[in-house]
Design a binder for these strands. Structure first.
Lengths: 241, 241
DNA sequence: ACGGCTAATATGTATAGACATTTAGTCGAC
DNA sequence: GTCGACTAAATGTCTATACATATTAGCCGT
């Protein structure tokens, strides 16, 4: 029987990982000119389309920059860019083996005012759903969430009572979004927050604020407050994704 | 004079943005099968390589998934993945128009022990440089930094005194890294930390821990403590990069 | 009804060539 | 020398074709 053909990475994958290895090992530092397409073509004995596809892919991934006539260069590493995984809270809780619990504290429909967190995005008087809820892990308070949902953009939210489904999970499954913004800070728990999280007043909490858009429309604002002693955000990453 | 030829996006760009628009507008929701290559080929009157390149690019970007024989499908949006920009501190401070100041609190060379933050990465007894420093904005304490640098991997660090250059900036410019891990949490300032940051004891601070590797070697560990009232991390991002 | 074979289908990979576009670098005129 | 125009070099885009490979629908026999 003929020897089984080795899976042998596709040629373009081999070329790509060769180049990535050179870059990631530091052998080709930032600014280094990588071989011209015709050189790689000769080196690997393949057509230009093949190396072109590879290098275009590396450029799309931000690993290299291309300049006509000049060549292709290893990109300057971006200062620090981390891909933070921020799953929704039920998933986060069950992911650590705890039992997830959820409580709706209030749900009301109102119009935005001039001091709302969304005031800069939504004109005052916009119809929103205003929710507050509490996430529990093994029966103990884990996070508080304040949430505003723009009803003009997500009218179905008005018919959802959110007494059993957390708004974050519901929105993820119902509304496609195109852009979001996070803000992460450390704050001391207010009197009310401390009570709702069963912490002493002023206890350090991780505060995650998120605004989400769909095209030009603001969809939602969320402020999640996590017990500092029970939660942290972790991210593992490479220089350029 | 003949009308100037409109810049007219390259065909593959037009195809790509057409498809992206359909996906981002929600018209083609997650799981929707996008037209087969041969259909797009007919629709745009082009060669298969052209649509193939487009769709392969969308797949590489995570916007769609491809299954042989079945077709190409709009991907489920990934839970939440944010690209966090975390520039080094001098840049951060001057970027907000404040004057940056830096103070080295101590610098000593020692061997790691069993309870070091790097204990799981470095065997006890590894030679490290142990630094503590303080970052100031307009003369006021802004952040505290504890830093360990593995001297076996970065021997040049032993000859650097770090009395004027922050270790983070120095490392960024001297050592290529291949992987890093962040951990973001909220903590209350200890007595010493409170004194060094000129805060009341227990004041909420944002704590950013970072471990950095080069290949299999651990390069450095940093723990940066920011005044909660003066600092937050912000990120703006799209569903799939 | 069930299980396995087969053939059709859509993507995956690659080629060789063509022409367009941008721009670094050269060379010449002033 | 300086500023321009020109040229050649490298990437950008696209075509038409070919064959490989994975997957599944459907056929077929039991």
């Amino acid at each position: 029987m003929a020897p089984a053909t080795v899976p042998a990475l596709a040629l373009h994958q081999r070329i790509r990982s060769d180049i990535e290895a050179k870059i990631l090992s530091g052998e080709w530092g930032p600014g280094h000119r990588i071989p011209f397409e015709h050189e790689l073509m000769a080196q690997y004995g393949c057509a230009r389309m093949t190396v072109n596809k590879v290098i275009a892919g590396l450029a799309a991934a931000g690993l290299i920059e291309r300049r006509r006539r000049a060549g292709s260069f290893v990109a300057q590493p971006r200062i620090q860019s981390a891909v933070l995984q921020i799953p929704d809270i039920p998933q986060e809780v069950t992911g650590r083996g705890a039992e997830y619990g959820y409580e709706l504290i209030f749900r009301r429909r109102r119009r935005t005012g001039p001091r709302d967190p969304l005031a800069s995005e939504l004109p005052a008087g916009t119809d929103v759903l205003d929710l507050r809820c509490r996430h529990l892990a093994d029966g103990k308070p884990f996070a508080l969430e304040d949430r505003l949902i723009a009803l003009a953009v997500v009218p179905e939210a008005a018919e959802t009572d959110f007494s059993t489904v957390p708004p974050g999970s519901w929105l993820l499954g119902h509304v496609p979004w195109t852009e979001a913004e996070h803000r992460i800070s450390a704050v001391g728990a207010s009197l009310r927050e401390a009570r709702e999280l069963e912490l002493p007043r002023g206890a350090p909490c991780l505060c995650l604020e998120r605004r989400t858009w769909r095209g030009a429309d603001t969809i939602t604002y969320a402020r999640q407050l996590f017990r500092g002693d029970h939660y942290n955000l972790a991210a593992r990453f490479s220089p350029q994704g």
